[in-house]
Simulated assay, not measured.
Amino acid sequence: MRLDDFDPNAIKVDDQRGSGMSIGGAGGKIGCGSIVIAAIAYFVFGADPMSTLSTINGAQSSGPVATSGGTNVSESCRVDALSKESCDALASLNKTWAPLFAQANIKFADPTLHFYSRMGRSGCGTAQSAMGPFYCPEDQGIYLDTEFYKQMDQELGATGQFARDYVIAHEYGHHVQNLTGLSDQIRSAQQQNPDRANDLSVRLELQADCYAGVWAAKNRDRLEPGDMESGLNAAHQIGDDVLTKGRAPESAFTHGSAAQRMQWLKKGLDTGNEDACDTFADLRT
């Protein structure tokens, strides 16, 4: 995907890389799907779920982080090619979504892209690389350890720049849900109907996939040959059934099957219409 170079004055970036962080003692509140993330870490990366959870809770500590970060947006976004790629995608996402919010007369706020290496801190508690990229509604932040992209390529078979752009765009989709108030509504519904919690989580995730497709469609002139295939392959490779290698029942899915994720990403790509991303429509009929 041929994206413009980021404008350092038009994006928000925080860089925790090279901070030498060692997590111990109080690790902050557990949340943002950490139990699910721990299970996924087990199936994808071979990490023990309980070990992952105890690390998130601050019961274990990490050594110094060697990766160097930047002291300002320009430096942080140019630490390496993957950092710049992420910042370029963030800038494009801001440019795409801000006018849509203005048209809908909904207040818009840019998210902050937080780079970290191995471990970091977020408004939702401790960030750990095994969690993969995630969005924290508490501080409107997208958290990313760029090493995840190498794991996507080498361990998941999700290759190509657009596969990586799709990851950022998906997390941005959660930001859109947060700003519109949908995330709060779903969390409330999950608390009131615990038996539906996983189903509602899946619908949120699939909508974020669709929103990622909408962003790409609205920037169709920037797409290159193979981009759509790269994105759809990534959506397939991170489906719950593929990640768990069939070991988890569909009732335990929280992000959707490979087929569902591909379906909703493609719907966004095909329509370019955010209104087509209503994964909750059948619940209202």
Rank of each mutant, 00 (worst) to 15 (best):
P137T: 12
P133L: 10
P194K: 05
G181N: 10
E171S: 05
Q103E: 02
D145F: 13
A66Y: 08
D199M: 12
Y143G: 14
P49N: 02
M262D: 09
L182F: 11
G239D: 00
Y172G: 09
A39L: 14
G141I: 07
G31H: 00
P49L: 12
F108W: 12
Y211D: 00
L206H: 09
S129A: 14
H174W: 07
M21T: 02
W97V: 08
G141D: 01
G27H: 05
I30P: 01
L283A: 00
A127F: 06
A248G: 00
W97Q: 03
A197P: 08
K218S: 00
N198I: 08
P194F: 06
Q128G: 15
G239T: 08
P99C: 10
F148Q: 11
D195M: 13
N193D: 14
N198K: 15
I142R: 03
G231A: 04
T52I: 06
D48N: 07
L82Q: 02
H170T: 09
W264N: 00
S201N: 10
K29Q: 06
C277I: 12
S51H: 15
A163H: 10
Q140E: 10
Q185A: 14
S257F: 11
W215M: 03
A47Y: 04
T146E: 04
G226C: 12
G272M: 01
G46P: 07
Q260E: 08
L243A: 04
L100D: 01
D227N: 00
I30E: 14
N94D: 14
C277E: 11
S68W: 01
L223T: 03
D240V: 05
H255D: 14
D184L: 13
D110I: 04
K84S: 05
A158Q: 06
L156F: 13
G157I: 15
R196Q: 13
L100H: 05
V73Q: 12
P64I: 15
Y42E: 05
Y42M: 13
G46Q: 03
T112A: 05
G24V: 15
Q185E: 11
N94C: 03
G27T: 02
F253G: 09
S34F: 00
V242M: 14
L82A: 06
N233P: 09
Q190F: 05
D7K: 01
